[in-house]
Simulated assay, not measured.
Amino acid sequence: MRDCPKGYISKQEFSAIYKNYFPFGDSTKYASMIFQLIDIDQNNEIDFEEFIQALNVSAKGTVEERLEVSFKLFDLDEDDRISPAEMLAVVDSIYRMVGPTQVLSEDEDTPNKRVEKVFRLMDKDHDGFLSKQEFLDGARNDPMIMNSLNLYAGMV
Rank of each mutant, 00 (worst) to 15 (best):
A54R: 13
R2D: 10
R66K: 15
V103N: 12
D142A: 04
E78H: 13
Q36S: 15
D125Q: 09
F119V: 11
T110W: 07
S70F: 07
S105R: 12
G128V: 07
E45D: 03
K6L: 05
P5I: 04
E13R: 06
V118D: 01
A153Y: 08
G99H: 09
I34N: 09
L121K: 15
K19F: 02
F51I: 12
G61P: 08
P23A: 11
T101K: 08
E134S: 03
D92S: 15
N112K: 12
D92M: 00
F24G: 07
L67G: 01
E49W: 03
D107L: 02
A31N: 08
I38E: 03
K72G: 00
G7R: 05
D41S: 06
M146W: 08
A139Y: 04
A54I: 04
L130H: 06
G25W: 07
F35S: 00
I34E: 11
L130M: 05
I40V: 10
K124T: 14
L104A: 10
V156M: 15
E64S: 14
G7D: 05
I145N: 10
L67Y: 07
D79V: 03
G25C: 06
R120T: 10
E64N: 12
V103F: 03
N43A: 09
E106F: 02
I38N: 13
G7T: 02
Y152L: 15
F119P: 13
K6Q: 09
L151D: 04
A54T: 07
D3S: 10
R81F: 04
E49H: 07
P100I: 02
A89W: 00
R66F: 04
F14D: 06
K60A: 13
R2A: 15
D26S: 09
L104F: 13
K6G: 02
Y95L: 02
P5S: 06
R114E: 11
Q36V: 01
L149S: 11
K6W: 02
A31Y: 08
D77I: 04
D41G: 06
R114P: 00
E86Y: 02
E68K: 09
F14L: 06
M33K: 13
D123N: 13
S10T: 15
E50N: 10
F74P: 00
A89V: 03
K113G: 06
E78Q: 15
T28L: 09
D77H: 15
E50Y: 12
T110Q: 14
C4V: 08
S70K: 12
D39F: 00
E116R: 14
K132V: 06
I34A: 14
K124C: 03
D79S: 05
R2P: 01
N20G: 11
Q42M: 05
D77N: 15
E78D: 14
T101Q: 10
I9D: 06
D142T: 03
V103M: 12
L37D: 13
Y18A: 10
A31T: 06
P84L: 05
D107W: 04
M144Y: 07
Q102T: 05
S58M: 14
D77Y: 11
E64T: 14
K60W: 01
M1V: 12
E116F: 08
T110H: 09
D123L: 09
S27Y: 04
E45V: 04
G99Q: 13
